[in-house]
Structure formats: structure tokens, C-alpha cells
């Protein structure tokens, strides 16, 4: 599903990624770990074409990300879901409208949007809050809305950048359980985190970055 081939990324003289190579199979779940500044977010940004490698190649599914045209880029991004540490909800829109955003942006028929949104909210157990505004939610609820928004369009790849960074351990476990469920439904999941305890509690593969280099790739 994901293939990094000798990917190097430089910002001027600073090396953010140094010849990183790894692959993830479809429906595989993995953790991307490392200290702050190790290159986790940079690697994830490559997977949604927010960055282009200085050298090397990134493949996602059948897409060679270097060769995507401007017209193909939105089509590619519709196959990816992204969860941020701060869920970046639109404060003046209801939970329903926030979750519906990817469907509207992708031009889904209006008639199918409510059912898809409700299904996504049921997955994160927030059906009862669909008309609430983000300001009325707890941080755990906001994060779950962010996850519902990331999966509502049924992506093949789910990326999460420090998804539990603002949550207590109990909520973090719940969020991890959700990611495992998505993986069980065939979604490839890559989670960047610096929470070692969280990673150790899960039976999935770990990709460890240190100063831009991939120093560990296994369990």
C-alpha cells in the first residue's frame, strides 16, 4: 500500500529524511515513532503530497506521488484520511457539517451524505452530538469527530499525526481501539506518535525515526 524507496528530504542544508525505505501492506497498521523533530510529520506530509522528496520515490497504492498531475492530486487525496493532534474542526459548523466536509468536497450526492455521516459518527459513538458545535465538546469528543471526518469517505489509507497527544490514557486507549477497528475493516493505518507506552501496548509494527533516519522497522 505504501512504499518509500530511499526517500531523502532536505530543507536547505538541514536533512529531514535520510534515505528512508520501508513498505506497508494493505490493511496493515504501524506506528511511526521518534523524538520531536525526528521527521515523523515530514514523512506523513509526503504521503499526502504536501511535500515532495528531494530524492527517492513514494508510492501509495498505484500512485507514484512524484508523477501526480494537478488534476489527479484531489482524486488521490480522496483515498487518504488524516487525523491531526488538534482535530482542526471548523468552529462555526456543527459536528455533522464538519464530518460531511470531505464528502461535499469530493462531490458526493447530497442524498447519500447524511447516511454516510451518521455511519461515521456511530463508529466513533457520537451520533447523539451531530448538531453540537465543536466548542460544546470535550477534547476526546473533538478528536473522535476528527477521526469520523477522516474516515467518512472510506479511505484506503489513514494517517494520524499524534492523535492522542492531548488526551488522557483512558481516552487514548479508546482512540487506539478505533484505529484497530478501521484496520480490521481493511484500512491501512499509519500513526505517528511519541508515546512509547501506547505503542508497547499494541501488537503492531513500529517504524522508528531518529534524526531523519529509519533506525528500526519491526515489532
Amino acid at each position: 500500500m505504501i512504499q518509500f524507496d530511499n526517500v531523502t528530504k532536505r530543507y536547505g542544508t538541514r536533512l529531514a529524511l535520510d534515505e528512508v525505505s520501508f513498505s506497508l501492506d494493505p490493511a496493515e497498521m504501524a506506528f511511526l515513532v521518534g523524538h520531536s523533530g525526528a521527521g515523523k510529520s515530514t514523512l506523513l506530509r509526503h504521503l499526502v503530497c504536501l511535500e515532495a522528496p528531494t530524492e527517492g520515490r513514494v508510492m501509495v497504492g498505484n500512485f507514484d506521488l512524484r508523477k501526480l498531475s494537478a488534476d489527479q492530486l484531489p482524486m488521490f487525496r480522496r483515498k487518504v484520511g488524516v487525523v491531526f493532534q488538534d482535530p482542526q474542526l471548523l468552529s462555526d459548523r456543527t459536528v455533522f457539517e464538519n464530518v460531511a466536509l470531505p464528502l461535499r468536497a469530493a462531490g458526493f450526492d447530497r442524498a447519500v451524505i447524511p447516511a454516510r455521516v451518521k455511519a461515521a459518527l456511530e463508529q466513533v459513538e457520537l451520533s447523539h452530538l451531530e448538531q453540537a458545535l465543536p466548542g460544546e465538546l470535550s477534547s476526546g469528543q473533538r478528536q473522535r469527530v476528527g477521526i469520523a471526518r477522516a474516515v467518512v469517505h472510506k479511505p484506503a489509507l489513514l494517517l494520524a499525526d499524534e492523535p492522542t497527544g492531548n488526551l488522557d490514557p483512558e481516552l487514548s486507549k479508546k482512540i487506539m481501539k478505533l484505529f484497530t477497528q478501521f484496520r480490521n475493516h481493511g484500512v491501512t493505518v499509519l500513526i505517528a506518535t511519541h508515546e512509547q507506552a501506547l505503542v508497547e501496548a499494541q501488537p503492531f509494527r513500529v517504524l522508528r525515526l531518529d534524526q531523519g533516519r529509519l533506525v528500526e522497522s519491526g515489532r
Binding site: 499526502v48 504536501l50 484531489p74 482524486m75 488521490f76 487525496r77 480522496r78 488524516v82 482542526q88 471548523l90 466536509l101 470531505p102 461535499r104 468536497a105 469530493a106 471526518r149 469517505h153
Partner: peptide
């Protein structure tokens, strides 16, 4: 800006 960034990221043209 935040909303437009999101739209771009989720595949809005």
C-alpha cells in the same frame, strides 16, 4: 484559511 486547507487536504478541487 483553516477551512480551505482542510478542503484541499480531503480532496476538494
Amino acid at each position: 484559511r483553516a477551512e480551505l486547507s482542510l478542503v484541499d487536504l480531503v480532496g476538494g478541487t
